[in-house]
Computed example of a mutant assay.
Amino acid sequence: MTASPRAVELALEAAQAAADKLARDIVVLDVSERLAITDCFVVASADTERQVKAVVDGVEEQLRRLGAKPLRREGEREGRWVLLDFSDVVVHVQHGEERTYYALERLWKDCPQIAFTDRDLSRTVEAVAPGAGRR
């Protein structure tokens, strides 16, 4: 069983919303074969607690436009790891230190990744090759 088309659509929109708020290291995982409670995880990093909150707000706003409301929102007070549960999609926005420590991608390494490309290619190019073309 693979993630539903709706779950993939929401996960990719969540990933784009996170990218629009300058989240880093965005990964979309199809966890549908391992978990019965959700189809996709979106994992993103932010450098500060304020940015974590901005990313979370951006994701929630974008998915609401698509008719998805979060069932739960956890960890917002601390701003270090916020979880948004949209049922078919669970979004994890983590401060860089938490991302490194908990390494969700390693825990779910057997799950296939869903390809995500930032629509703003200038951010993608900079993320892949910082300083490219500079002398």
Rank of each mutant, 00 (worst) to 15 (best):
M1I: 11
M1C: 07
T2Q: 02
A3P: 11
S4L: 11
S4M: 15
S4W: 15
R6Y: 08
R6V: 14
R6M: 14
V8F: 03
V8T: 06
E9R: 15
L10A: 06
A11T: 01
A11M: 10
E13I: 02
A14V: 03
A14S: 05
A15L: 02
A15Y: 13
A17F: 08
A18C: 09
A19V: 15
A19Y: 05
K21P: 01
K21T: 00
A23W: 09
A23P: 04
A23S: 07
R24I: 13
V28I: 03
V28T: 15
L29G: 04
D30K: 12
D30A: 08
S32Y: 12
E33W: 15
E33N: 13
L35V: 05
L35D: 02
L35P: 04
A36I: 13
I37D: 02
D39E: 11
D39M: 15
V42C: 04
V42T: 08
V43H: 02
A44Y: 12
A46H: 07
T48E: 13
T48D: 11
E49W: 08
R50G: 10
R50S: 01
R50F: 09
Q51M: 11
V52E: 05
K53E: 15
A54M: 02
V55D: 04
V55T: 05
G58H: 12
G58F: 13
G58E: 00
E60A: 05
E61Q: 01
Q62H: 04
Q62M: 14
Q62L: 08
L63G: 00
L63V: 06
R65Q: 10
L66T: 12
L66G: 01
L66H: 01
G67N: 05
A68L: 02
L71W: 11
L71E: 15
R72T: 14
R73E: 04
R73I: 15
E74P: 12
G75Q: 11
E76F: 15
E78Y: 02
W81D: 00
L83V: 13
L84M: 00
L84G: 00
D85T: 15
D85F: 03
F86Y: 11
F86V: 00
S87H: 08
S87Y: 04
D88S: 09
V89L: 00
V91M: 11
H92Y: 06
Q94N: 13
H95S: 06
H95R: 09
H95A: 10
H95L: 03
H95N: 11
G96D: 01
G96L: 08
G96F: 14
E97G: 08
E98K: 14
R99N: 11
T100Y: 15
Y102S: 07
L104S: 10
R106W: 08
L107I: 15
L107E: 07
K109C: 10
K109G: 09
K109V: 06
D110S: 00
D110I: 03
P112M: 13
P112S: 12
I114R: 01
I114M: 07
A115V: 14
R119P: 11
D120Y: 14
S122W: 14
S122T: 08
R123H: 12
R123S: 07
R123Y: 14
T124L: 07
V125T: 09
V125L: 13
V125W: 10
E126H: 12
A127P: 12
V128P: 07
V128M: 10
A129C: 10
P130A: 05
G131M: 06
G131C: 05
G133H: 04
R134P: 08
R134T: 07
R134W: 13
R135K: 14
R135A: 14
